[in-house]
């Protein structure tokens, strides 16, 4: 008994020495604010007042009745669907080409595709805003291309695509790096064997490489889904939710509810609801795609 206790204390000591500071930081900056945030969803706090009332679940009722929230949520789902598909497809194609033997300047190209990911979302948004509203419009008017003659940023039907284009440009290179790491790790002898067995390039890709790449896809799909739902900076700098709120993605909507409309409780409820949804989607995705993994 005593020995057991001593072992526990020893373990605790080791734990505290190695992980104590991290645990403390995690508790204070993630867990406590998270719990406090949930607590605030049951109040009508405006963000600054010292006194506030408990309102039970009425903030959640407000969220479920808020048309603007659901419109924004559906828009975000659409945005996530487009970006996940395009970013991963493009990222994989780039990685596949750049790990082949016949491409010159591979390292330079890899760096080139990765660089957009190093630029902050706000700057990226401003740069692309200039491209969409000035450069493309100028080209469109000079060459009489009707779909470019008016800024896409002011067209409620096209504005979502500007966000998708910028996100694809931003993340494809990053996902490409993850795919390259996966592709490089596929044992050469397997590919050799497939080649000797007479599998052509397409068959090797479909029957061998893609199944072995599932672990990479789990990571990239997870990252793109999670980033897609959380995107705020590009949304803010590129479209500001406009024209007339038709490109207001969910993070921006939550933020405006909490800080602009000064309904902190409602905004926090939306954020918590969003957390549950994104967590559920991500966990489901990882769980099901794990089943697709194969052993080499």
């Amino acid at each position: 008994m005593l020995a057991l206790e001593k072992r526990f204390i020893d373990k605790l000591k080791t734990y505290l020495i190695f992980a104590g500071p991290t645990t403390l930081a995690f508790l204070t900056v993630i867990i406590l604010p998270f719990l406090f945030g949930i607590y605030l969803t049951f109040t009508n706090w405006d963000g600054i007042a010292k006194a506030y009332d408990f309102v039970g679940f009425s903030n959640y009722v407000t969220v479920f009745r808020d048309d603007a929230f659901w419109r924004s949520f559906l828009l975000t789902v659409k945005y996530v669907a487009y970006t996940v598909v395009i970013v991963n497809t493009l990222g994989f194609i780039l990685a596949y080409i750049l790990t082949g033997d016949q491409v010159p300047g591979q390292n330079l190209l890899r760096t080139g595709f990765f660089v957009p990911n190093l630029i902050g979302g706000i700057i990226l948004g401003l740069v692309w805003r200039f491209i969409f509203s000035n450069i493309l419009v100028f080209i469109g008017r000079q060459l009489n291309i009707s779909f470019l003659s008016y800024s896409w940023l002011t067209n409620p039907d096209k504005v979502l695509w500007t966000l998708v284009i910028v996100s694809v440009w931003q993340y494809s290179g990053y996902m490409m790096i993850i795919f390259i790491a996966g592709l490089v790790n596929i044992p050469k002898d397997l590919i050799e064997a497939a080649r000797i067995d007479g599998a052509n390039g397409f068959q090797r890709l479909r029957m061998l490489i893609l199944p072995l790449m599932v672990p990479s896809f789990i990571v990239t799909v997870f990252l793109t889904i999670q980033r897609g739902f959380m995107v705020y900076d590009v949304n803010l700098a590129l479209t500001q939710g406009g024209p007339f709120k038709t490109s207001e993605l969910i993070s921006m909507h939550v933020y405006e509810k909490a800080f602009l409309a000064q309904q902190y409780g409602v905004g926090q409820s939306q954020a918590f609801f969003l957390f549950l949804l994104v967590a559920a989607i991500s966990v489901t995705q990882v769980y099901f795609s794990k089943k697709l993994e194969v052993e080499a």
Partner: peptide, 16 residues
């Protein structure tokens, strides 16, 4: 506090 954003968005719709 959110009047300008909401009514402003409606005004933008009317403007365009």
């Amino acid at each position: 506090p959110d009047h300008w954003a909401n009514v402003g968005a409606s005004m933008q719709k009317y403007l365009s």
